[in-house]
Design a binder for these strands. Structure first.
Length: 311
DNA sequence: ATGTCACGCTGCGCGTGA
């Protein structure tokens, strides 16, 4: 095998060398404009060294994305699948574990009124990644809210039509799955992100076989991923958990760590969202998946690590 | 206490989206 003729394989080797012993780090981050966030994104990639990164709210057309980032990402070993538009929305997948079979959007998915750049999928090292930016919904009586529900149904259908066990759906779902995922549930009654139909649509997505791996690992912990820019909300830790990593069974069984990188929300020029990072243990075949754990391996085993969050 | 950011503009402060 000649590595130089196989850039995908070479990227996979690089990832293994970079992170050690085959463990794979995946992440999602709503960057709120990749152009504005470049001074935070590049150092974050260098510090956290994720192997697969899903971005949302890139707010950049694909040619501009390539022009802005191709060199910096290529130098770090990443291949890129970007699906954006000029001003709003926009999603991407960065991978140094291979990047194949890229698909944009959702088959048969709704538009508002036209399809928006809110989903991109790719196969990276044997796992199917879907980077999603779920519509906000605005208010529960709005067309945008109905669009949100229809969009989630189309996402569920797409995942169900694939191979859910080796799928990872990650991104900004604009839904707090439970009241524990909101700093003040009473303050949000009647607003989007917490209504029953939204939570039911999210549950329907998960019912195809996806695990909320951050909540599974920290069942009782106050953990948020988004804090409004205003009024010192982050400083007071008044946020919501609306950025999720949802994985199929085979992936969930390999989760070694799952945490929110609050450091990235601090300091100068942050996004209003923090990245979510999940480490997966090595797959026995040396690829990153999919792997069904042997019967003797309890699915609950995981070398739980202390959450590396800042005070 | 409606507080911040980012977007684009028959732009130079404002409406819109989050």
């Amino acid at each position: 095998m000649i590595a130089s003729a196989l850039p995908t394989v070479a990227g996979s080797v690089l990832a293994t060398v970079a992170y050690g012993k085959g463990r794979v780090r995946i992440a999602t981050w709503n960057v709120n404009s990749v152009k504005q966030r470049l001074p935070r994104l590049l150092p974050w990639l260098d510090e956290r060294r994720p192997d697969v990164v899903c971005l949302q709210e890139t707010k950049l057309a694909d040619d501009a994305f390539a022009q802005l980032l191709a060199e910096e990402l290529g130098a770090r070993g990443y291949e890129v699948a970007a699906h954006g538009e000029a001003t709003w929305n926009g999603v991407a997948i960065l991978s140094r574990a291979g990047l194949d079979d890229v698909a944009v959007g959702l088959p048969g998915g709704p538009g508002f009124p036209h399809p928006e750049a809110r989903a991109v999928s790719a196969t990276c090292g044997g796992l199917r990644f879907v980077s999603v930016y779920v519509p906000n919904g605005r208010t529960p009586d709005s067309d945008h809210y109905r669009y949100k529900l229809a969009w989630l149904a189309a996402l569920r259908d797409m995942v169900a039509a694939g191979d859910p066990t080796s799928t990872v759906v990650l991104g900004d779902v604009n839904i707090a799955p439970a009241d524990e995922d909101v700093f003040d549930p009473e303050a949000y009654v009647g607003q989007t992100h917490v209504t029953a139909p939204e939570r039911e649509a999210l549950a329907a997505l998960q019912s195809v076989g996806l695990h909320d791996v951050v909540r599974d690992r920290w069942p009782d912990k106050r953990v948020f991923t988004y804090w409004d820019y205003r009024a010192g909300m982050f400083h007071q830790d008044l946020g919501m958990r609306i950025d999720l990593v949802l994985t199929g069974d085979a992936v969930a069984a390999r989760v070694a760590a799952a945490w929110v990188d609050r450091q990235a929300r601090k300091g100068k020029g942050p996004s209003d969202h923090a990245p979510v990072i999940v480490d997966l243990d090595d797959a026995p075949d040396g690829d990153i998946g999919p792997v069904v754990p042997p019967p003797s391996a309890p699915a609950a085993r995981r070398g739980a690590k202390k959450l590396p969050q800042a005070p």
